[in-house]
Design a protein around this nucleic acid. Structure first.
Length: 265
DNA sequence: CGGGCGTCCTGTTCGC
DNA sequence: TGCGAACAGGACGCCC
């Protein structure tokens, strides 16, 4: 479930501990995650200093001197710092060894990935949702000829990155737009409201995540999810928090989608 | 290129 | 109560 806020919170939690530390080696405990792990190529790169950790969409970029390691958490991935010598738990697939601690990549469903960043790998990604470029005009331009449901379009990483099923549903609820509407049916004003809602939700979630940063270095690996704040997620069969109409659940492009048929038009 | 769907996985929740 | 089935979900590949 990591969407942009969880990835950003992870980045912010790790950075003070790992910036400018030497990544001495990696332990790869399986041959593949989502993709085969490039074992020999990864081993050949190390040791190297980790200069910083950046984020692009839902990807974490571990910047080494000569290369960048690209990590995606998939839907069940998490990272946690552990003392040197800590034994891996079930589903800890990768261990990053640093001089004073080790970083465990944990991912029960193994939808995540680790690869050496190659030229062009991220070139199709859309813009960052928290950038100034992401606004009503940009969104309108990119969806005005599209027949797909608006929810599918804001989750399309080629248009805007970082928005997954949870925050897409929340943002549509806040902006009172039905997730079922065709992209082309939204006018500039709809797009502006939706952009603002996306930015607001992501920003709030990062802020809440920031208050629970310590969780990322706890052995349980708990994330700073925003779950108490979510208005719809996990609430099928409940009533709209605004108007008390029963919430509706529909599958949109294979994703369960919850919305209020009264508030969201 | 757009759009729809299947696929990868396993822990959790659901329904009989 | 206990069991198996369905579900959860990001990104990519495939097909039309």
């Amino acid at each position: 479930m990591p969407e942009l806020p969880e990835v950003e919170t992870t980045r912010l939690g790790l950075l003070p501990h790992l910036k400018n530390q030497t990544l001495e080696r990696l332990t790869l405990r399986r041959d593949k995650l989502r993709f085969p792990l490039e074992k020999s190529a990864l081993e050949a790169l190390l040791p190297q200093t980790l200069s910083t950790i950046e984020r692009r969409g839902k990807y974490l970029l571990f910047k080494l001197q000569s290369h960048t390691l690209l990590l995606h958490l998939g839907m069940s991935g998490s990272l946690r710092l552990e003392p040197l010598g800590t034994a891996p738990k079930t589903h800890d697939h990768i261990i990053y060894h640093f001089p004073k601690q080790q970083l465990h990549y944990h991912d029960p469903r193994r939808f995540g990935s680790l690869e050496i960043l190659k030229e062009g790998r991220l070139k199709k990604l859309g813009i960052e949702p928290l950038s100034d470029e992401f606004n009503g005009a940009y969104l309108h331009q990119h969806i005005k000829n599209r027949k797909s449901a608006i929810k599918t379009l804001i989750m399309d990483q080629n248009i805007v990155v970082g928005v997954g099923n949870i925050y897409a549903s929340e943002a549509l609820f806040i902006s009172k737009i039905s997730p079922l509407r065709e992209g082309a049916s939204l006018n500039i004003d709809d797009c502006t409201r939706l952009c603002q809602a996306i930015k607001q939700e992501l920003t709030r979630a990062i802020a809440v995540g920031g208050t629970t940063l310590k969780d990322f270095i706890q052995p349980d690996g708990t994330h700073g999810y925003f779950s108490q704040e979510l208005k719809l997620y996990g609430k099928k069969k409940q009533n709209c928090p605004n108007c008390k109409t029963p919430l509706e659940a529909r599958i949109i492009t294979g994703r369960n989608s919850i919305f209020c048929p009264n508030c969201q038009k």
